[in-house]
Amino acid sequence: MIPISYYLLLSAFLFACGVTGFLIKRNIITLFMSIELMLNGVNLSFIAFATRLQTLDGHIFVFFVMVVAAAEAAVGLAIIISVYRTRETLNVDRVNLLKL
């Protein structure tokens, strides 16, 4: 018997780790993995809330998030490959033809 808040805190922690990773990491693939970590945190929230509310809609939402994550991974890794071909680097700071 533990409160749902524990699960929510864990999910918030995962999300925050993802955000931190996105801000401090410099390798493009690691940045992308940080985003996956954020999505995993969100998924845990959905499941935890579904348990609290006693409806399965949260489970369905997680299912769709996974589909989207898979599609994003396919496209994202293709983009990373195409950048690597033109620039030969995976460091975001070196991908700097366009000024920010």
């Binding site: 992308f32 995993n40 998924n43 499941i47 489970h59 997680v62 299912f63 898979a70």
Partner: peptide, 27 residues
């Protein structure tokens, strides 16, 4: 495994197959 604790049987299986399996293999 945490999903299993919450009773989300289907999601737990999909998590292993799709996420940990397919997507991470691609990475």
């Amino acid at each position: 495994l945490i999903y299993l604790l919450l009773g989300a049987e289907f999601v737990a299986v999909v998590q292993v197959i799709i996420y940990a399996g397919a997507i991470m293999v691609l990475y």
